[in-house]
Deep mutational scan, measured.
Amino acid sequence: DETGKFLVLALYDYQEKSPREVTMKKGDILTLLNSTNKDWWKVEVNGRQGFVPAAYVKFL
């Protein structure tokens, strides 16, 4: 149950560059965990948590 969690859509592919980031593919649906930083949002994708560039995702 994803109640209270926001979902975001990956607009572009992103390859993680550090262990704190996660890789996503364009079209992936991600669970948004934290968006307090304007540049990097914490998400969960494929069972992994990490950061992606905020400009690469949008709210569903």
Results as ranks from 00 to 15, higher is better:
10 A>M: 02
37 N>V: 05
51 F>A: 03
11 L>T: 05
11 L>E: 05
51 F>P: 00
43 V>K: 00
34 N>A: 09
46 N>R: 14
60 L>Y: 12
8 V>N: 01
37 N>M: 09
33 L>R: 04
15 Q>I: 14
37 N>W: 07
11 L>R: 06
51 F>I: 07
7 L>T: 09
46 N>F: 07
55 A>K: 13
1 D>F: 10
8 V>E: 00
43 V>M: 02
3 T>Q: 15
39 D>H: 14
49 Q>N: 08
5 K>T: 13
56 Y>L: 15
28 D>V: 04
10 A>P: 01
6 F>M: 15
24 M>S: 01
13 D>K: 02
38 K>C: 08
16 E>L: 07
53 P>S: 02
11 L>F: 04
45 V>K: 10
42 K>M: 12
26 K>F: 05
27 G>F: 04
6 F>Q: 14
51 F>L: 11
16 E>V: 06
36 T>E: 15
7 L>R: 10
9 L>F: 11
51 F>W: 13
58 K>P: 01
50 G>C: 02
59 F>R: 13
49 Q>Y: 08
46 N>G: 14
41 W>Q: 01
48 R>I: 09
40 W>E: 04
50 G>Y: 02
7 L>M: 11
44 E>F: 06
1 D>L: 14
37 N>H: 11
20 R>W: 15
39 D>R: 13
48 R>E: 06
31 T>R: 10
10 A>K: 01
19 P>R: 06
17 K>T: 11
23 T>Q: 04
42 K>I: 15
6 F>I: 11
42 K>V: 15
9 L>A: 07
18 S>Q: 08
19 P>M: 08
37 N>I: 06
52 V>P: 00
58 K>E: 14
30 L>C: 09
56 Y>G: 07
10 A>L: 02
3 T>F: 12
38 K>T: 09
57 V>F: 04
18 S>M: 07
18 S>A: 08
27 G>A: 03
32 L>P: 01
54 A>Q: 05
31 T>S: 09
27 G>D: 06
16 E>Q: 14
1 D>N: 14
52 V>Q: 00
52 V>G: 00
48 R>D: 04
46 N>V: 05
45 V>E: 03
8 V>F: 06
2 E>S: 13
52 V>W: 01
47 G>F: 05
17 K>C: 08
22 V>S: 02
45 V>L: 14
24 M>A: 02
43 V>I: 07
54 A>H: 03
57 V>I: 09
24 M>E: 00
22 V>R: 02
2 E>K: 11
42 K>T: 07
15 Q>M: 14
50 G>A: 03
49 Q>T: 15
39 D>W: 14
32 L>E: 00
22 V>C: 06
29 I>R: 07
26 K>N: 04
16 E>F: 05
33 L>D: 01
46 N>A: 10
54 A>T: 06
49 Q>I: 13
39 D>P: 03
47 G>K: 06
22 V>D: 00
31 T>D: 05
8 V>R: 01
12 Y>I: 10
55 A>Y: 09
1 D>E: 14
41 W>D: 00
7 L>C: 08
5 K>N: 11
26 K>D: 02
4 G>D: 13
26 K>C: 06
40 W>L: 03
34 N>M: 07
10 A>T: 03
60 L>P: 06
23 T>I: 03
29 I>D: 01
32 L>M: 05
32 L>W: 03
10 A>E: 00
32 L>R: 01
37 N>R: 10
9 L>S: 06
19 P>T: 09
42 K>Y: 15
57 V>P: 00
17 K>F: 05
11 L>C: 07
38 K>Q: 11
23 T>M: 04
16 E>W: 04
52 V>S: 01
36 T>M: 12
26 K>G: 05
44 E>P: 00
58 K>D: 11
36 T>A: 11
49 Q>E: 15
48 R>L: 08
27 G>N: 07
25 K>N: 09
15 Q>N: 12
38 K>R: 12
20 R>S: 15
22 V>I: 15
42 K>P: 01
34 N>D: 15
10 A>C: 08
53 P>N: 02
33 L>N: 02
39 D>I: 14
11 L>D: 03
24 M>G: 00
10 A>Y: 02
2 E>T: 15
29 I>V: 13
15 Q>F: 12
36 T>H: 14
37 N>S: 09
23 T>V: 03
21 E>P: 04
21 E>K: 04
36 T>C: 10
26 K>V: 08
45 V>P: 00
23 T>K: 04
5 K>E: 11
12 Y>T: 09
10 A>I: 02
58 K>N: 08
40 W>S: 03
37 N>A: 09
42 K>N: 06
19 P>A: 10
22 V>A: 05
48 R>K: 15
36 T>F: 10
4 G>M: 11
18 S>I: 05
27 G>E: 02
26 K>S: 07
4 G>E: 13
37 N>K: 07
23 T>G: 10
57 V>E: 00
26 K>P: 03
13 D>E: 05
32 L>A: 03
27 G>H: 05
33 L>V: 14
42 K>D: 04
13 D>F: 03
21 E>M: 04
38 K>D: 11
40 W>G: 01
19 P>E: 14
10 A>G: 04
48 R>N: 06
57 V>W: 01
22 V>T: 05
55 A>S: 12
46 N>P: 05
17 K>M: 12
32 L>Q: 00
30 L>T: 01
9 L>G: 03
47 G>L: 05
14 Y>D: 00
60 L>C: 09
23 T>Y: 04
8 V>C: 10
30 L>E: 00
44 E>Q: 11
37 N>D: 12
17 K>W: 03
20 R>H: 15
32 L>C: 08
46 N>M: 08
30 L>S: 02
58 K>A: 14
14 Y>W: 13
42 K>W: 15
15 Q>Y: 15
39 D>S: 11
43 V>H: 00
38 K>G: 10
40 W>T: 02
59 F>I: 15
11 L>V: 09
42 K>Q: 11
36 T>D: 15
21 E>S: 06
50 G>K: 02
15 Q>A: 12
26 K>H: 06
20 R>Y: 15
24 M>Q: 02
20 R>V: 14
60 L>R: 04
9 L>E: 13
26 K>L: 05
52 V>E: 00
24 M>H: 00
12 Y>Q: 12
55 A>R: 13
51 F>V: 07
36 T>Y: 11
4 G>H: 15
27 G>S: 03
55 A>G: 12
17 K>N: 12
22 V>F: 13
27 G>T: 02
41 W>H: 03
46 N>C: 08
